[in-house]
Amino acid sequence: MTTTAFQVPFTGVIGDPFPFATVSLAASTGASPGPGVARLSATSMCPAFTPGANCTTYTSATVVRWLNLSTGAAGTVTVPSGSFGVPGKEPVVDVPTGSGHVTATVLGESSATIVPGLGYFFVP
């Protein structure tokens, strides 16, 4: 399995636990979840103006718009809010992107976006 951190984290008005937060995402591809599928996960949420300070494993829901540059397939998914280590509450979603080079834009589900997140990864 290969995990690629999104190159630009999403920053927006979240409200709880931070008024302005940066949410980092990653894409896992390969043997698990399987060929042609990317597993998107939120990996942390931190205060926007003090990166790395008081980060939490809880993350707010984010909307990801993706485009497979190799095939032209596109879609929108929501990575749910949740916490790592809590079964059934982990912030992950499997996305059938198809094989190829994929780019993704990340926006807040219900917050004002300050800086959209961006990611680029390969799905075998």
Rank of each mutant, 00 (worst) to 15 (best):
G75E: 10
A38C: 09
F49Q: 12
P87K: 07
I114R: 15
E90I: 07
T105R: 14
A5I: 04
P87G: 01
V63E: 06
L25R: 03
S70D: 01
A21M: 05
I114V: 15
P51H: 13
M45W: 04
A42Y: 03
T76D: 08
S28A: 13
T71M: 02
A38L: 03
R65Y: 09
A112H: 10
N68K: 00
V95Y: 03
V77G: 04
V79E: 01
Q7F: 12
S41N: 11
A31N: 13
S81F: 11
G12K: 01
V37P: 04
T29K: 01
P47A: 08
T56H: 05
A31R: 15
L67Q: 12
S83H: 13
V37R: 08
A27Q: 05
A61D: 02
A26E: 13
T3C: 06
T71N: 08
F18W: 10
G117D: 07
A42W: 01
Y120I: 09
V8F: 15
P80K: 10
P35V: 03
S44W: 06
F84P: 05
T97G: 00
F121H: 05
S44T: 10
S99K: 07
V77H: 07
T50G: 10
T2M: 14
V92G: 07
S111G: 13
V63R: 08
P51E: 10
I14W: 11
V123L: 05
L67K: 11
V8A: 14
